[in-house]
Design a protein around this nucleic acid. Sequence first.
DNA 1: TCTGGGGTCCTAGGACCC
DNA 2: TCTGGGGTCCTAGGACCC
Length: 367
Amino acid sequence: MEQQIGKGKLMSEKKRIILHVDMDHFFTAVEEREHPEYKGKPLVVGADPKEGKGRGVVSTCNYEARKFGVRSGMPISRAWKLCPSAVYLPVNYELYVKVSHEIMDILRTHADKFEQWGIDEAFLDITSQAKDYAEAEVLTREIKKEILEKQKLTCSIGIGLNKLVAKIASDIQKPDGLTIVREAEVDRFLEPLPVRRLLWVGRKTEQKLKTMGINTIGDLARYDPAVLVETFGVVGTQMHLMARGIDRSEVEERGEIKSIGRDVTFQEDTSNVEFILNTLYALADEVHRDSLRQNVNFKTVTVRIRYENFETHTHSKTLPFITNRLEDIKKTAKELIQSYLRPDRNVRLVGVRVSNFISAEKQKTLM
DNA sequence: TCTGGGGTCCTAGGACCC
DNA sequence: TCTGGGGTCCTAGGACCC
């Protein structure tokens, strides 16, 4: 099917070798490094548990905490019930970002092409540096060693012929793992895994697939692609390709940032308009500072509100001018939130976000 | 179990212009 | 007076990622 001999493109394409690097329980690992006294104890980074009455979730927990059943994303109140003796720390985001930068700088030096993925993961295309998987393994061990020596942190790495396989592979052996999936092994590797392991298959899609009798990646690969397209549209095609281990997406650096926002969940639900507006202004202030730091001008302001029953709305306005002024964020945000503030409705969360950035280049052409 | 906070991308409908 | 089709921008909501 892919014998485009005349064009020769596919035939001459060299097989890629892709790495996916995933730092092990990153936030708690950094905290353990900074505070050796926490090592060996269950450690949870996330919301304040407040003796089991706290709101919010677990961001990361170390392996000692996992022995008690604590998991990331779990309500912090539940974590407290499972392991009240754990050390609970707030999220020190600035510290993790700093360490993340240092790690990404190390990784970047080893890659032909590099792509950061979230705060603690990255894809590396190392095709030009390894002629086969044996050479890739040697390089990968060097990368792990360098991160351990320079940052005193471990990571788990997956190696495969594309991003999809590398990403799933990095999750197989943890912590401090190294998993290679060779081309001939791809189908056997993916076949028994639950569909949830695929990128972009979240809770909702997993449920939908389950009702269709699709549980494993193998089930999905064998399913009629026409029906998948009918049910999921373009995503259906993408899923069917992924299930067969096909992923041609390139490893590439992320482009410019598209939006900047802040959200906050109140300690207690409230309908106090003055309090809600003041909170919104404080968030606007942070968004404004961040947008100055990132040197972006924006046109669109969006507010978000969540009521106590979790019903969530967004409301946005695109201004007829480009701005970076705090007053414009505050004024627009107030205007947008007004109709959602009612004395009979308790509010759980508010947020504000700016977007529709105008790049420096585009601005020049407008002047 | 009772659900954070930072983001990105996609879809669908409607306004508006030519 | 009624009616096209294409393109672009805006808005709201939702799914997903870490």
